[in-house]
Computed example of a mutant assay.
Amino acid sequence: MQANRRRFLGGMLAAGLIPKPTWADAGGPAYLAAAAKPDGSFALCGIGRALNITFEIPLPARGHAAAAHPTRPQAVAFARRPGRFAVVIDCVSGAVKAQLDAPQGRHFYGHGAFSQDGDWLFTTENDYEHGQGRIGVWDVSKGYTRVGEFHSGGVGPHDIKRLPGSDVLVVANGGIDTHPDSGRVKLNIATMQPNLTYLDQGQIIEVAQLPPEMHKNSIRHLAIGPRGQVAFGMQWQGDGQMSALIGQHRQSQPIQLIGADDDHARELGGYIGSIAYSRNGKMIAVTSPRGGVVHQYDANDLTLDQVFELQDVCGVAPQDRGFAITSGRGDIGGLGRDGPAFAQSDALRWDNHLVEV
């Protein structure tokens, strides 16, 4: 009877009579986030719009960020950089569908992005023997098989996003060269050249660079607005204090830097952990786990709008009426015009990023 039932279901699936699973079958998460648990284990979690946990799936080690497939309930969870693995998870069953291993001479940087149709996955990688950034290309239909790679347009590519309604990719080339033999030591601070690189079908179509005097400001994390504008958060590698740790860019236009006065710049500690646009693109929120603060800026006039303190804050993503925020202490909540509203959990300590599904 079991064999007959499997053949029957297999025939219905082949005929297209059984609906393919969607994100609704995984509880309809609005976000993905990696977390650490009290017993020392790690998990990838789905988080609903009400900031409830929709699923919790074990990870083999500490996670950093994730990429959500645009239609299937599948997520790629990336190891904390520099990492050599990423796992593809069926978020309905919790099963590991595939494991991505960085090729010899490469490591991942903790981020990836899908093509618009979900047929391809792109991963940021370091070719550490040549000190060059690479974008790995993985064929989803063939079980996430690696089929190629191309130049990231710089050194140390960290975050990667796809512009809305297109397959144009934008890469945050942080500019920092590292090598596994040196651990996390930064090898080229004096000569680093961070940039934003736009790529179409593996070809560089635009490169936006910072002013020469800011070449030690490593571009790390990206947010994409509803009209294709790009906001980016930076991490200062120089001496003293850097007032501008946030930038905004549109293709074919100069970079706009968003600065803060001395006191508010000091709060950020030279380090932006995550960045997000509001749903309407009018506000930009950034987090600094070093400073324990969230800053919210007006994206049009580039002024600081609101400041909120939260220890070890890092994850941020748009919410219907503001921003959803997580912290390494286990805080999860929202920041809107009426102020913050948070709850703290002892069961899950959130890692760096809150990724929209």
Rank of each mutant, 00 (worst) to 15 (best):
K186L: 09
S141E: 09
P157W: 06
D177M: 12
E125A: 07
Y128Q: 07
F85A: 15
G131V: 03
V137M: 03
D181K: 12
I135F: 03
D90Y: 10
D119T: 15
V185H: 15
G175L: 04
S166V: 00
G156W: 02
T145H: 12
L121T: 04
V96T: 13
K97R: 13
A172I: 08
G183S: 10
V87F: 04
V170T: 09
G183I: 07
D167W: 03
T124C: 11
V170G: 01
K97Q: 13
V137N: 03
D177R: 14
P82K: 06
G136A: 01
T123A: 10
C91L: 03
R162K: 10
P103N: 06
G133S: 01
V185E: 15
G110C: 05
V140E: 00
D139F: 11
G133Q: 01
H151Q: 13
W120G: 10
V171P: 01
G110N: 05
G175K: 02
N173H: 08
S93H: 02
G174I: 01
Y144M: 09
L187S: 07
G143E: 02
D119Y: 13
G105V: 04
P82W: 08
G118R: 00
A98G: 03
A172K: 05
V140N: 03
V87S: 04
A113C: 12
Q116D: 05
Y144I: 04
R106A: 07
D167E: 02
G143N: 02
H179N: 11
D119A: 15
E129Q: 15
K142H: 11
A102H: 04
I189A: 06
S166F: 00
G156V: 05
N126F: 12
I135V: 12
P164Q: 07
Q99C: 13
D101A: 15
Q99F: 12
Q132F: 15
V140Q: 00
R146Q: 12
A86W: 03
G83Q: 09
H111F: 11
R134T: 10
I176S: 01
V147T: 12
D177G: 11
K97N: 12
W138M: 07
T145D: 13
V168C: 08
R146P: 07
